[in-house]
Design a protein around this nucleic acid. Sequence first.
RNA 1: GUGGGUGUAGCUCAGCUGGUUAGAGCACCAGAUUGUGGCUCUGGGGGCCGUGGGUUCGAGUCCCAUCAUCCACCCCA
Length: 420
Amino acid sequence: MQVKAPRGTYDILPPDSAKWQYIEKIIYETAQLFGYSEIRTPIFEHTELFERGVGETTDIVTKEMYTFADKSDRSLTLRPEGTASSVRALIEHSIYGGVMPVKWYYSGPMFRYDRPQTGRFRQFHQFGVEVFGSNSPYLDAEIIMLLVKILANLGLDDYELHLNSVGCPGCRENYRQKLIAHISPIKEKLCTDCQARYQKNPLRVLDCKVKSCQEAISGFPYIYDSLCDDCREHYTKVKSALEDNHIKYIHDNNLVRGLDYYTNTAFEIHIPQIGSQSAVGGGGRYNGLVKECGGPDIPGIGFALGMERLLLALDSMPGRIQPEVKLDVFLAVLDEKYNSQALQVLDRLRNSNIKADRDYNGRSMKAQMKYADKLGAQVVILMGEDEVNHGTFTIRNMNSREQLEVEAAQVIPVIKDILA
RNA sequence: GUGGGUGUAGCUCAGCUGGUUAGAGCACCAGAUUGUGGCUCUGGGGGCCGUGGGUUCGAGUCCCAUCAUCCACCCCA
């Protein structure tokens, strides 16, 4: 049996690869406009990093990691997300000793052993940003503005921005107690998952998708009401900054992030029309994470975008992108004795920044014309006995069907004129 | 990890209640007189009918398993 790509992985081939290049370019340029610089970290890390950084009780760590032992029996893990590596790099290179805040972006494949589904793969791609060294609520607002700007530049405007604050560890403990107190009396009404987890992490019950749980918890206290003065003030400033900048958001009391390290501001972007995996991006503040990973006590905030989901969203909104890699010039070589000479002609065209190609499979002239048409060539250059003898080339405009014979030296200007 | 759907040419699919050399459209290649594309016509190449078992005189068609894929749950980006 032939070998296929492993479950949950896939190949990105033309013409789809052009779509990827298109959205990557827009995203990187937007991030750079906001003052971010790129980092590239390893695709695998010590398993311990993710256990510490992502949280040992999370689903990601407990059941979704690609963990393996190398030949020296080190336990390594294919990265399931990008924040932990960023934090590790920040600490390892003592970046916090320099100018703060540090604004980074990254992009690349992530790995999670999940059941594949629409918008969910085992190897998927994320773009993310991280900022270290500032606790300003206006930075929270700016990072959300970056996220919104990226979506706008991609032509995506039909989305929902959900916002909440999960407070600091103090608020959370306070809230946890309140929640447990409220859930305990009616725990029989909850699904088995929630019954199992409400003691340890009652926050998870809030965004449980089971209807009966949602019904059971209606009227329950919100974390917003348990925020301490500092956290409440922080959240209020974030909201008003967004309002001042005309960013529409939905305060979502049920939004709690799945990763343990989040504090204060949490946000998610949803595009419902792409299916049940509607979260295109999400992030928040993680003020305790750097310290937790062995660094100094400095705050951080970031978000990640799911590239596959962005593509799904763009595909669901027709006409958003149609990047075509068309050929400028096709060189039809009418006699094989000019094969080598033809390469020189192509070289000259390409040196003038003209996208040019030719046939290598011995096609007839007619077949070469068809081939040129399929490649989307705007111009065909004919190179046959007549032309070579006269020191000229015949240039055919494929759109107007006009043809003219020009001196060798005039070929590039004439073609540039047609392409312009 | 749970539930359901689907696996026939590169792609989209047809193949009636099991019956002889497995089809269509699109795509690909070649022709329709001399060195000319998009339309049309003609011809051609290409399928261990996902894989492995089983039932049967006979299986693309029925049964089981397995793998893959899709949809949803779960989780998340």
